[in-house]
Design a protein around this nucleic acid. Structure first.
Lengths: 181, 181
DNA sequence: GTCTATAAAAAGATAGAC
DNA sequence: GTCTATCTTTTTATAGAC
């Protein structure tokens, strides 16, 4: 568990942020280096190629998903409510890397694609024991997908159409009533 | 209603397809021209800049959404069931352009972002009179978002299994029971 | 570890022939 | 309308100084 160099983390943070804000096209080595406060040469010392930078983002996702699955299973509010809320969250470390990696996946990065499939299957398995049947399971997964994709895909400058506050509480109640075991 | 030149449509089709399959980064003028079977110069006669090509895709979306809204409102099965089913439908002209434009939006194209907002709002307004309240409305919209995105992205990237046949019928029943006026 | 300088390729765009 | 040739800028990557 040796902690990675600070500059390396700053570069990866900057890359992630540009992917979220402006998409893969804008996330050039130059733009990433500038946002991280290093030179292009400095960036390339830590990540020898652009692909290495992308793979590091996928690796960051894996770590954060491990923690998330544990949190879902043990949530006080119950797995379904916790999962729905976290699908609509916009600024956790997991949400950020998830959006960034899904942009990579849309650009054709195969590691990103399979990492995202893996994440969805782990969520699916964590939720299944807590709903009545497969139809209820479909409903919970699809509502969460809707929440997540609206965040991930609808453009970043958008105050998305996803319910918040009391509207989210009401939605969770409705889904729980419809899917309860 | 003069029909646009054939080559122009072929170029726009090719651009749309590359955006869907490989993302904005791959959808260069060169790649688009090659896929359309014309030269870069030929492409640039029809679309003077890359932005013009992107705007033409957004315009194509507007036309197809007009038709879709009309179909939702008049559906025999009812707007909610029709909307859910069509969200899970694959590779209609509307689905294709919708995916392509959402990729543009992620790249920061402001016209694409506002066009997508407009589409979602029009769908939203078409559904609202047919559900009990705002929470029910959120549920229908989010399940449809989940269906649409999973289905739309199944080939290339992020995707989970979308219910079909009897599983879809059961899901529609569940949603209608939970949201009925 | 980080920098500057620079190469090599790819991208968007223009000019002019046909 | 469509092409080839060419220009400019951007992007990825390398080399070598500090």
């Amino acid at each position: 568990m040796s902690r990675p160099p600070l500059a390396r983390e700053k570069v990866l943070d900057a890359f992630e942020q540009i992917m979220i804000d402006d998409g893969e096209r804008a996330a050039t080595l130059e733009a990433t280096a500038r946002a991280a406060g290093v030179s292009k040469g400095g960036l390339l010392y830590h990540f020898g190629t652009k692909e290495a930078l992308e793979l590091a983002l996928v690796a960051r996702l894996s770590v954060l998903v491990d923690e998330d699955i544990a949190a879902i299973i043990t949530a006080d509010e119950g797995p379904v409510a916790y999962f729905m809320r976290s699908s609509a969250m916009e600024s956790s470390a997991l949400d950020r890397v998830l959006i960034a990696v899904s942009r990579l996946a849309q650009g054709g990065n195969t590691h990103a694609v399979s990492a995202l499939h893996d994440v969805r299957e782990r969520w699916s398995n964590a939720i299944r024991p807590h709903v009545a049947d497969e139809t209820a399971h479909d409903l919970v997964m699809l509502v969460s997908d809707g929440l997540y994709y609206n965040n991930a895909l609808a453009g970043s400058a958008v105050a998305g159409p996803v319910p918040t506050g009391p509207a989210m509480d009401a939605l969770i109640k409705l889904v729980e009533r419809a899917t309860r075991t």
